[in-house]
Protein backbone atom coordinates (compact mmCIF):
# COMPACT_ATOMS: atom_id res chain seq x y z
CA UNK A 1 0.00 0.00 0.00
CA UNK A 2 2.70 2.47 1.02
CA UNK A 3 4.72 1.47 -2.02
CA UNK A 4 1.73 2.07 -4.24
CA UNK A 5 1.25 5.52 -2.69
CA UNK A 6 4.83 6.57 -3.24
CA UNK A 7 4.82 5.16 -6.77
CA UNK A 8 1.72 7.18 -7.60
CA UNK A 9 2.24 10.21 -5.42
CA UNK A 10 2.05 12.72 -8.27
CA UNK A 11 -1.36 11.43 -9.29
CA UNK A 12 -2.59 11.36 -5.72
CA UNK A 13 -1.52 14.96 -5.21
CA UNK A 14 -3.37 16.00 -8.36
CA UNK A 15 -6.53 14.19 -7.27
CA UNK A 16 -6.56 15.79 -3.84
CA UNK A 17 -5.83 19.29 -5.09
CA UNK A 18 -8.36 19.05 -7.92
CA UNK A 19 -11.10 17.98 -5.51
CA UNK A 20 -10.55 21.20 -3.57
CA UNK A 21 -10.22 23.33 -6.69
CA UNK A 22 -13.42 21.85 -8.14
CA UNK A 23 -15.36 22.61 -4.98
CA UNK A 24 -13.82 26.05 -4.59
CA UNK A 25 -14.35 27.42 -8.11
CA UNK A 26 -18.11 26.86 -8.22
CA UNK A 27 -18.83 27.49 -4.56
CA UNK A 28 -20.70 30.75 -5.11
CA UNK A 29 -22.68 29.97 -8.25
CA UNK A 30 -26.18 31.56 -8.32
CA UNK A 31 -29.01 29.08 -8.89
CA UNK A 32 -29.78 30.72 -12.25
CA UNK A 33 -26.52 29.31 -13.57
CA UNK A 34 -26.92 25.77 -12.24
CA UNK A 35 -28.02 24.37 -15.59
CA UNK A 36 -25.40 26.02 -17.82
CA UNK A 37 -22.70 25.19 -15.30
CA UNK A 38 -23.73 21.56 -15.25
CA UNK A 39 -23.74 21.57 -19.02
CA UNK A 40 -20.28 23.18 -19.17
CA UNK A 41 -18.87 20.68 -16.67
CA UNK A 42 -20.46 17.98 -18.78
CA UNK A 43 -18.48 19.18 -21.78
CA UNK A 44 -15.25 19.31 -19.77
CA UNK A 45 -15.42 15.67 -18.71
CA UNK A 46 -15.53 15.01 -22.44
CA UNK A 47 -11.74 15.12 -21.99
CA UNK A 48 -12.22 11.34 -21.85
CA UNK A 49 -12.02 11.62 -25.67
CA UNK A 50 -8.24 11.77 -25.24
CA UNK A 51 -8.29 8.24 -23.87
CA UNK A 52 -10.40 7.20 -26.84
CA UNK A 53 -7.90 8.74 -29.27
CA UNK A 54 -5.02 6.93 -27.55
CA UNK A 55 -6.90 3.61 -27.66
CA UNK A 56 -7.76 4.15 -31.31
CA UNK A 57 -4.25 5.22 -32.26
CA UNK A 58 -2.67 2.21 -30.57
CA UNK A 59 -5.02 -0.41 -32.01
CA UNK A 60 -3.30 -2.97 -34.24
CA UNK A 61 -4.78 -3.04 -37.70
CA UNK A 62 -5.69 -6.75 -37.37
CA UNK A 63 -7.54 -6.32 -34.08
CA UNK A 64 -11.10 -5.76 -35.26
CA UNK A 65 -12.55 -5.56 -31.74
CA UNK A 66 -10.15 -2.80 -30.69
CA UNK A 67 -10.70 -0.91 -33.95
CA UNK A 68 -14.50 -1.03 -33.73
CA UNK A 69 -14.74 -0.27 -30.01
CA UNK A 70 -12.08 2.43 -30.32
CA UNK A 71 -13.90 4.02 -33.24
CA UNK A 72 -17.17 4.01 -31.30
CA UNK A 73 -15.35 5.53 -28.33
CA UNK A 74 -13.98 8.37 -30.48
CA UNK A 75 -17.47 9.08 -31.88
CA UNK A 76 -19.28 9.14 -28.53
CA UNK A 77 -16.41 11.05 -26.90
CA UNK A 78 -16.58 13.71 -29.62
CA UNK A 79 -20.35 13.88 -29.19
CA UNK A 80 -19.79 14.60 -25.52
CA UNK A 81 -17.25 17.35 -26.17
CA UNK A 82 -18.74 19.09 -29.20
CA UNK A 83 -22.39 18.68 -28.23
CA UNK A 84 -21.61 19.68 -24.66
CA UNK A 85 -19.87 22.93 -25.54
CA UNK A 86 -22.37 23.90 -28.24
CA UNK A 87 -25.41 23.32 -26.01
CA UNK A 88 -23.80 25.29 -23.20
CA UNK A 89 -23.03 28.14 -25.57
CA UNK A 90 -26.64 28.17 -26.78
CA UNK A 91 -27.90 28.36 -23.21
CA UNK A 92 -25.53 31.19 -22.36
CA UNK A 93 -26.21 33.10 -25.56
CA UNK A 94 -29.56 33.96 -24.04
CA UNK A 95 -28.02 35.29 -20.88
CA UNK A 96 -25.83 37.57 -22.94
CA UNK A 97 -28.76 39.04 -24.84
CA UNK A 98 -30.30 39.91 -21.53
CA UNK A 99 -27.32 42.02 -20.49
CA UNK A 100 -27.70 44.39 -23.44
CA UNK A 101 -31.11 45.52 -22.24
Amino acid sequence: MLEWISANQQIIYIVILMIFVGIEVIGRVPSVLHTPLMSGANAIHGVVIIGAIIVMGKAESDNILALVLGFLAVIVGTLNVVGGFVVTDRMLEMFKKKKKN
Partner: peptide
Protein backbone atom coordinates in the same frame (compact mmCIF):
# COMPACT_ATOMS: atom_id res chain seq x y z
CA UNK B 1 -2.47 11.38 -18.50
CA UNK B 2 -2.61 14.49 -16.35
CA UNK B 3 -5.15 16.45 -18.37
CA UNK B 4 -7.70 13.64 -18.23
CA UNK B 5 -7.05 13.34 -14.54
CA UNK B 6 -7.39 17.08 -13.93
CA UNK B 7 -10.50 17.51 -16.05
CA UNK B 8 -12.14 14.38 -14.70
CA UNK B 9 -11.56 15.00 -11.02
CA UNK B 10 -12.42 18.70 -11.41
CA UNK B 11 -15.82 17.82 -12.86
CA UNK B 12 -16.25 15.00 -10.37
CA UNK B 13 -15.77 17.39 -7.46
CA UNK B 14 -17.61 20.37 -8.92
CA UNK B 15 -20.45 18.11 -10.10
CA UNK B 16 -20.87 16.64 -6.64
CA UNK B 17 -21.03 20.08 -5.06
CA UNK B 18 -23.44 21.27 -7.74
Amino acid sequence: NKVMLTGGILVGAAGTLL
